[in-house]
């Protein structure tokens, strides 16, 4: 399937620079590093837990660049009042993970 990723190139650039600023190790950010950033959004912890659940596609407890972009995308949408989905819609799955 060839659906464009909902994360736009300019958003991806922004998320990538946040990713890099958090000091990824081996291209991955651990939960310890991502958690304070998501908590900064002031969203309820149960919402953030779901954001993590949806973003950590391989369930390894760490986020790579694309997974992190999904997390940030969901957080930004949630801040705009959009509900966080219960499961990840196909357009939100990074092309590298399909």
């Amino acid at each position: 399937i060839d659906i464009p990723w909902v994360v736009k190139p300019e958003e991806k650039m922004k998320f990538d620079s946040i990713f890099e600023s958090l000091g990824p190790v081996g291209g991955m950010l651990t939960g310890d590093k991502v958690k304070p950033v998501l908590l900064n959004s002031k969203l309820p912890v149960d919402i953030l837990g779901r954001v993590w659940e949806l973003s950590d596609l391989d369930r390894d407890g760490m986020l790579d660049k694309d997974e992190f972009s999904v997390a940030m995308y969901l957080v930004y949408r949630a801040l705009e009042g959009e509900p966080v989905p219960m499961s990840l819609p196909p357009p939100l799955v990074p092309p590298s993970k399909r």
Binding site: G31, K35, L38, V45, D46, G49, W52, E53, R59, G61
Partner: peptide, 13 residues
């Protein structure tokens, strides 16, 4: 690293 039980990979649980 994370507490046992539930989703151990989720830092928010």
């Amino acid at each position: 690293q994370y507490p046992a039980g539930g989703s151990s990979t989720n830092p928010f649980l």
